[in-house]
Amino acid sequence: MAGIHITDIEAAINFWRERSPSPDGLSLAAPVRALAQVYALMVYFHETEADEVTLPAEAREAWLAWFDSTPDTPCIAICSTSQGDAVCKGCGRTFDEVQRWTEMSPGEKRVSWRRITLEGDSWRFNRYAERALEQGSPRWSVNVPARVP
C-alpha cells in the first residue's frame, strides 16, 4: 500500500479551493473539508504520509479527482530501460516502475513521481525539460529548485 504524501494532500486541497471557492469566506466545499480533515490529522500526529487505502471515502474521492487532473506518466519518450538501464535516463523511473506502471495504484504512481521529482536528475528535468513541460509535467507538485543544465 502506498502512502499519499502530505504535499499531494495540499495540492488536492488547493485544486478544490480553486474549483469550489468559499461563497462566504468561512465555509468549505465538501471536498476541501474532507481533505482538510486528513491534512489536520497528519499535521497533528506529525505524519508525512496518509495510507491510500484507508483514506475516508470523501477524502479519497476528492484526492482521486485531483490525481486525475495530473499527467499519468513521467515518460518523455526516451526510454533507456529498454536498452538495459536499471533507471531510465529520460524519466527517472526504475525498470520495475516502467514495467508495472499500468497496474500501479494512484498512490504508488505518486510515490514514484515524488521520488523522481526530488531527485531531479533525469533528462526530463534538465536536457529535455521543455518536452516534459509540453506534456504537462506536475513539477509544481513538489517544490524542487530548478536545475541548471
Rank of each mutant, 00 (worst) to 15 (best):
E18R: 14
V142H: 07
V98H: 02
W113T: 03
P21N: 03
S122G: 03
G92M: 00
S27K: 01
V38H: 07
V142T: 13
Y39D: 06
F15Q: 03
S82C: 09
A12W: 08
T81G: 02
V142A: 07
A65I: 15
T81V: 11
W63I: 11
T73P: 05
A77R: 14
A12Y: 03
V43A: 12
S22I: 04
R93M: 02
I116D: 01
S20G: 12
T117A: 09
C91M: 00
E49Q: 08
E103L: 03
V142C: 08
L28R: 13
I76H: 05
L28Y: 08
P149F: 09
E97Y: 01
Y39W: 13
D121T: 07
F45M: 09
E61D: 15
I9P: 02
F45P: 00
E47F: 07
R110Q: 06
W101C: 03
F45A: 10
C88T: 00
I13F: 05
W66N: 15
A86S: 06
L26F: 12
C88I: 00
I9Q: 02
A57S: 14
V98F: 00
A77N: 13
R114P: 03
A30V: 11
D68F: 14
A34P: 05
S27N: 07
L55F: 03
C91E: 00
A132L: 04
I4E: 03
R131Y: 01
R127H: 09
P149R: 11
I76L: 08
V38G: 04
W66I: 13
N14E: 13
F125P: 05
A146M: 11
S69A: 15
L41S: 08
W16H: 15
Q99K: 07
S22G: 06
W140V: 01
S137D: 10
C88A: 00
A129F: 09
T94E: 03
N126D: 10
R127S: 11
A50W: 02
M104V: 02
A86P: 01
V98E: 01
H46M: 14
